[in-house]
């Protein structure tokens, strides 16, 4: 298989079914550095499955996911030894869950939550770790005075921002996001969208974003993949796909959006 020399993540021929239900059917996907790719589709279309397979959390029945590390070497994500994959998830990759409580340690202070990835990487200077935590709280617009507070005293939007700070503290090049704005009030959602967009852009992070919200995809993503019953029915530039949808399912999705 030849791979574009710049490509960050590349998937070819992914197949996975849960019993008789196809979750992925011959799916291809590519991601270049600094690019945001949205995976859209309704519930059960296979978008979260695709995210989990791309990030190595779930093994496909066939197909290959290739990742290029910062040194330029290619890795078959599903052939990587578990320690290497876990190390990757702690350093060059990040994962933002829809529910921040799945990722955060609710009994550990905000600073400890942000600092954990640094400590996992072997950072052993308390003062520096704390400084980094405070800096990241500011970057995600959380009052640095709350660095010692427990996350359980935070609102939903703050928890999601704390999760983002915790994920980005190691400067990953690739972040996987599963409905990061789901379950939040619209005003909180808008603030988070702006934050994700500016952080991703400023830090040059590439991201794979799963969302069922086409408006979120339009505002954040450069490219979009539309999935239905495990198949990619349409892919391309976000504005092309949303303004000039070709596939019947995409046309249905686009026409089903409520206009505010």
């Amino acid at each position: 298989m030849t791979v574009d020399p710049d490509i960050l993540l590349s998937a070819r021929g992914l197949n996975l079914s849960f019993g008789a239900i196809p979750a992925l059917v011959n799916v291809d996907a590519d991601l270049w550095p600094g690019e945001m790719l949205a995976i859209v589709g309704e519930s059960g279309s296979g978008k979260t499955t695709l995210l989990n397979v791309l990030s190595g959390k779930l093994r496909p029945q066939s197909g290959v996911v290739t990742y290029r590390d910062p040194a330029g070497a290619l890795h078959d994500v599903h052939a990587m030894p578990q320690p290497a994959l876990r190390a990757l998830h702690r350093s060059d990759w990040g994962f933002v869950h829809q529910n921040p409580r799945e990722n955060l340690r609710m009994a550990v202070s905000a600073g400890g939550n942000v600092g954990e990835r640094l400590m996992a990487q072997g950072k052993r200077h308390y003062g520096h770790i704390r400084e980094a935590a405070i800096d990241w709280l500011q970057q995600v617009e959380i009052d640095p005075a709350r660095v010692d507070d427990l996350p359980r005293t935070f609102s939903g939007g703050m928890l999601q921002r704390l999760q983002i700070a915790r994920t980005l503290v190691t400067h990953p090049r690739l972040v996987f996001m599963d409905e990061p704005t789901g379950g939040l009030d619209v005003s909180v959602q808008a603030r988070l969208l702006d934050l994700i967009r500016s952080l991703v852009r400023r830090l040059g992070i590439a991201a794979v974003l799963v969302t069922h919200d086409l408006a979120v995809a339009r505002l954040l993503a450069d490219r979009i993949i539309v999935m239905q019953r495990g198949e990619v029915v349409e892919a391309g530039l976000t504005d092309q796909v949303l303004d000039d949808p070709a596939h019947p399912y995409t046309q249905l999705l686009v026409s089903s959006v409520l206009q505010a």
């Binding site: 603030r191 967009r197 505002l219």
Partner: peptide, 10 residues
């Protein structure tokens, strides 16, 4: 374009 489509809070 004729329409302004931007992230809300900016």
């Amino acid at each position: 374009s004729q329409f302004l489509r931007v992230v809300p809070r900016v």
